[in-house]
Write a protein that binds this DNA or RNA. Structure first.
Lengths: 339, 339
DNA sequence: CTGAAAGCGCTTACAG
DNA sequence: CTGAAAGCGCTTACAG
């Protein structure tokens, strides 16, 4: 099959190629009657503008990029990214923007991808995930002037726009809830150290525990994987001063923690209460269902996409604070048993 | 920053733009010495070919497409797709191919996406997932002559190349294993009816149960989600003629089934044995860990990508049968208790 | 309101 | 082995 071009439309309509371009792009320069005639013909012959030609003249690729730097085994199991992508897509599809996805091995590789995308003019902008403190990607994106939206924050994104939610407040709510139930020895299994949201949560945990006088609280670091979540839980639950409640930085580690408790013959929630972060469907698949810090991740992605498209269009909207995750109590939390 | 173009490289090297193009693409037409000089300069000034310009003249977009038609809540929770994508990416990145991802709402929308991608020349080829019997996407892709690799099969892909694995054999192995343990009442919670791999498994289940004389075996249909997996399990376990073992079409439903059994006060594996399909890390997160039909999904994706790139290059390699999923026994299966 | 033309940055026959 | 030129299919000033 031969792809129809703008010239085919122009010939059929008896106008110039320029007129067709104006009509298709909603620009002034053609009469309304002509525009409608051209649009009808384009539809009839199944015309779609060649994206390469358009990119070459218009300088917009109509595509945005998302580079993910997590090992395959974590990417697969973490519902977060796919949910985020689903949300991003709803915005992008509506404006016929494509999403270019790339899985990278390291922050350096990710930076190389950005440089290549920029050089190839392959994308008009990018999403930046898993922001770190003093993130080396930020100055590169600023130097390239590649429009970018940081998913996460606040802060540490240089001049890049953030779409973020208040993790400190959410964590504080979870701890206060556990304390209201009567817990005093609360532990936290944190995500990868160095990631900004991990650090924000660690700091918030320290703060709220200090304020409430929970002096035996502790954070153990893990990498968001089930294996490390399990290991951290095993360590916590076999310590002399066993916590009565554990807050996890994602749902995968929380589920692994639940299995470890059951394995060790401890009841959940009778012996240990468990709170998960990120309330994917996973949390309701297990028994007992997990109390979780929930938020609408597809919406989060959609907001990020809106901001990125606005930045690309030259109307940056600045930072955006998304809803704060809120606690959904389920069967995995209860008052601690008297011991 | 101004992006360097081929003209910048040519000027610096004191050669024509054509010579630079030949040098960069490994074509004959420049001496080895000149080629090296040109490559060094390109590297030095950070030149990357503009992908739009290249696509416009060369007719290749250096991108392939993947359209996924599953609701966000299932996409997020099913590790399969992300693992597949990870594997696809390893092949694509190695050849500087980009992956364009699109989440669609319906098979019709997916077909529209293919037509648009083709018309826009946005991708050089596509992956087709979740093949159905008499799949309407197949004739469209053939008509468009858009190179495509079907992930799944065998059969029902028209002239499109398949990368598939023998689900019938894997399912048979699982049932034979359960029978060897002593089970006679085996149920199956199947995936979405209409999907080819679901139908293949349903047929294989019927066949092996017939052969082994398991006349009370039954398949219940679900949609791969945890909710429906739980509902189906609840139905099966509350029936008078309760099965002693259940085989699930994915890991998410199996985990939901495990929770339901525990909820109902049934022991796993003492009262019910559970076998999951697709052995993601999830299966080892729960307690007891799930016996699963395991295969290397990133490798599956990588093979599909190799085939697609070959087809795009004009050297179609034909169908490819990937490894058959093999059973990994874990704690969720055991001989049935005497009743 | 419309048409003819230049130009985006490459690739690739075609001459030398 | 190398250079000059056409062409891919659009967009967008620039004339009319």
């Amino acid at each position: 099959m031969k792809r129809p071009t703008i010239a085919d439309v122009a010939r059929r309509a008896g106008v110039s190629k320029g007129a067709v371009s104006y009509a298709l792009n909603g620009q002034p320069g053609v009469s309304e009657a002509t525009r409608q005639r051209i649009l009808a013909i384009a539809r009839e012959i199944g015309f779609n503008p060649n994206s390469a030609a358009r990119a070459l003249s218009g300088a917009t690729a109509n595509a945005v990029g998302l580079a993910l730097c997590r090992p395959a085994r974590i990417l697969g199991i973490e519902p977060f990214y796919m949910e985020l992508i689903s949300g991003v897509e709803t915005e992008l599809s509506a404006r016929s923007y494509a999403l270019t996805l790339q899985v990278v091995e390291s922050p350096e590789a990710e930076i190389a991808v950005y440089r290549r995308w920029w050089g190839e003019r392959r994308v008009d902008g990018v999403f930046v995930c898993d922001l770190r403190i003093d993130d080396r990607r930020v100055p590169v994106l600023e130097e390239l002037r590649l429009p970018a939206v940081v998913i996460g924050g606040p802060g540490h994104g240089g001049g890049l726009a953030h779409v973020w939610s208040d993790d400190a407040a959410a964590l504080t709510e979870a701890v206060e809830y556990l304390v209201a139930l009567g817990h005093r020895r609360i532990a936290r299994v944190g995500g990868l150290p160095g990631l900004l949201h991990t650090e924000i949560r660690t700091e918030a945990f320290r703060t709220v525990c200090g304020r409430l006088g929970l002096d035996r609280s502790v954070t153990v670091s893990a990498d968001y994987s089930g294996e490390e979540g399990a290991r951290a839980t095993r360590r916590l639950l076999s310590s002399a001063d066993r916590p009565t409640a554990i807050v996890y930085d994602n749902d995968v580690m929380a589920i692994a923690g639940l299995a470890v408790a059951q394995e060790m013959g401890l009841g959940v929630p009778s012996d240990v209460s468990i709170v998960a972060w990120d309330d994917s469907a996973l949390c309701q698949l297990v028994h007992p269902a997990l109390t979780a810090l929930s938020r609408d991740i597809p919406a989060y992605g959609a907001h990020a996409a809106q901001r990125l498209l606005a930045a690309i269009a030259g109307n940056p909207l600045g930072d955006y604070q998304d809803e704060t995750a809120h606690l959904i109590p389920r069967g995995s939390t209860a008052p601690p048993a008297a011991r």
